[in-house]
């Protein structure tokens, strides 16, 4: 059975569900989202000044729920592996980008700005909004801009793969180090000092891990994008 036909047979149940959803939404409206209950986030905010870094979201992403981030890295890793498996060594489908003078000069102008901004977002992720994911993708997009404008350029696969391996292995090793030193996986073994709070070097392993995440995400995004943007002159 084609998936669409099956989905259409689901439409009926979909609409029943919609009716239910609408009813419940009206119910939510009437009750108003409960603002008075104590959420886990409040507890984390209280803990943050002694355990974390200035940007609480970073503390949560990298430390309190760091295991989710490890899983997320694994998702990206598997996805880029899958994209590579599907599209690698595949010369038939290529995107031909006509690079003109405007694109070339604009990319020359923009590349340093984007890459500096990306690195800033990545390294200051524990003090200001941003972090490894956003910074990594920004750096990857700067490289993508160069790839589009310059036909002959290609980031060697070995470099991407080496960065990726290094970052991934060191992330898991930091986790295992915590397990070894204090019996807790991903423990912040470089215990943070409250006096440093808000400085660039603060928070123990948190900035280190976020930079590692940035390298990993950046190299994987670069890999995915480079695979999707095949040009006739590569392999």
């Amino acid at each position: 059975m084609s998936i669409k036909r099956s989905l259409s047979t689901l439409t009926l149940s979909g609409f029943t569900l919609s009716a239910l959803l609408i009813l419940s939404f009206i119910n939510i409206l009437l009750q108003n989202v409960a603002t008075n209950i104590e959420r886990a986030g409040d507890g984390l905010l209280k803990l943050n000044s002694s355990e974390g870094v200035a940007n609480v979201v970073t503390t949560v992403v990298v430390y309190f729920r760091g295991f989710d981030t490890l899983g997320e890295i694994a998702v990206l890793f598997i996805a880029s592996l899958g994209v590579g498996l599907m599209l690698e060594r595949n010369t038939e489908c290529t995107i031909k980008v006509q690079s003109n003078f405007m694109l070339q000069s604009a990319s020359k102008l923009l590349f340093p700005i984007i890459i500096i901004f990306g690195l800033y977002v990545m390294i200051y992720g524990h003090l200001s909004p941003g972090g490894g994911f956003q910074g990594g993708v920004l750096v990857a997009s700067a490289v993508l801009l160069l790839l589009i404008s310059n036909k002959d350029l290609e980031v060697p696969h070995a470099v991407i793969s080496a960065l990726e391996t290094l970052a991934g292995v060191s992330y898991v090793l930091i986790g295992l180090m915590g397990l070894l030193l204090s019996d807790v996986f991903l423990f912040n073994f470089l215990s943070p000092n409250i006096a440093d709070f808000g400085l660039l070097l603060s928070g123990g392993i948190i900035p280190i891990v976020y930079i590692i995440v940035g390298i990993k995400v950046g190299s994987e995004m670069g890999f995915i994008v480079q695979n999707l943007l095949k040009r006739s002159d590569d392999v």
Partner: peptide, 9 residues
Amino acid sequence: DVALTEAVI
């Protein structure tokens, strides 16, 4: 943070 992530990713 979410705004930046949504914008970039």
